[in-house]
Design a protein around this nucleic acid. Structure first.
Lengths: 199, 199
DNA sequence: GTCTATAGGAAGATAGAC
DNA sequence: GTCTATCTTCCTATAGAC
């Protein structure tokens, strides 16, 4: 089946791009990892840019599949911590995004539009959800837009930091606790306890 | 004077690398911006890697100069917000760091060691300072290491996010407020007020 | 579908003239 | 110090055989 080969190449490209970035990745490296030649890869993905875009979609698909079944929005801190933990379980997922985000920032890389749009959409969605649940201010006292921006920054920053920090196992827990504090939910004095204490 | 030319090249390289990343930057591009040729640049900086390392030092030097005069540690949220605001006033400063951080992540780039060491040192220093001031837990209830990691993640994330977000003017204020909440200092209910309320 | 061969270009770095 | 010229390496992408 054709899809097998495609997915095999996507997996390989995900790993390599996570390890070396977009510009640092040669099609040869992807091909070698996937067990075929450069030209074989180009048969499935007409260009390197196209390959990257498909990787990003592939990544989103995997992350979404992981959250399927959860009632997203019920437990913000939990959802995010889960996502963080999931991506940590396969670091390439987070790395490829962070790396591409950084490269997207630096000009007209193919993924610039993708990343920009994703950031904005996540922020808008989060603000909307926070307002719907808490009103204009979350329990911590922050305004909804401020809280949303802070939470997203926290997530992005955690992605970055754990990549350079071997002691990364702590990060999902840090996200959980820090989000509980930022939003003002949870009992922060007994940290370690589940922060979702609303009901 | 020799230093003039060097600094001129560093300024040019800072801008170009912020715009295109390390791998995306050619010495030709730096040279053109600095008003000389590739070989002229290589006369002052023997290699591209060496040039990058000197840019990072240059950047730190500028940032430190900006904080000079402040009593660092007196007002954590204020210090960080100031740094964020300063870097925003010259986006290349933040961009080049974020970009290089991302590239450092992806392997053996020249700056990998630099960034790794800087992250760790900042975290250690922050933890130590928090403990010294607040003890094992900050007022918000987070443990000092957790608070430190969350704060650093917040800063890193803000760097990333504002790069893709045109409405970035809000970010210094967001940092100020979110940090006050994370640490548990300041009166978050009247957000916008100075968060440093300790005596 | 997957390969060999090759076109065509870009970049880092060195040698040496002025 | 700054330049021209050159070496060398690496990469994307295409053309065409099997």
């Amino acid at each position: 089946m054709v899809s097998d080969r495609r997915e095999q190449i996507l997996e390989a490209a995900l790993e390599v791009m996570a390890a070396h970035g977009f510009r640092g990745t040669s099609i040869d490296a992807v091909a070698e990892r996937a067990g075929l030649t450069r030209q074989g890869v180009l048969h499935y993905f007409p260009s390197k840019k196209r390959l990257l875009l498909e990787i990003l979609s592939f990544r989103e698909e995997l992350a979404r599949a992981n959250l399927a079944g959860r009632r997203v929005g019920e437990d913000w801190a939990g959802d995010f911590a889960e996502t963080v933990a999931f991506e940590q379980s396969r670091p390439s997922l987070a790395t490829v995004y962070s790396v591409v985000l950084a490269e997207a920032v630096t000009g007209q890389e193919p993924a610039a539009g993708f990343v920009r749009q994703r950031c904005r959409s996540m922020q808008d969605h989060l603000v909307e959800s926070l307002i719907e649940r808490y009103g204009e201010r979350v329990p911590s006292g922050l305004s909804a837009p401020t809280a949303a921006a802070a939470v997203l920054a926290l997530i992005e920053g955690v992605h970055q930091l754990w990549l350079v920090d071997p002691e990364a196992e702590r990060y999902p827990q840090i996200v959980r606790e820090a989000m509980a504090v930022l939003l003002g939910t949870g009992t922060t004095a007994t940290e370690g306890q589940s922060p979702a204490t609303k009901g």
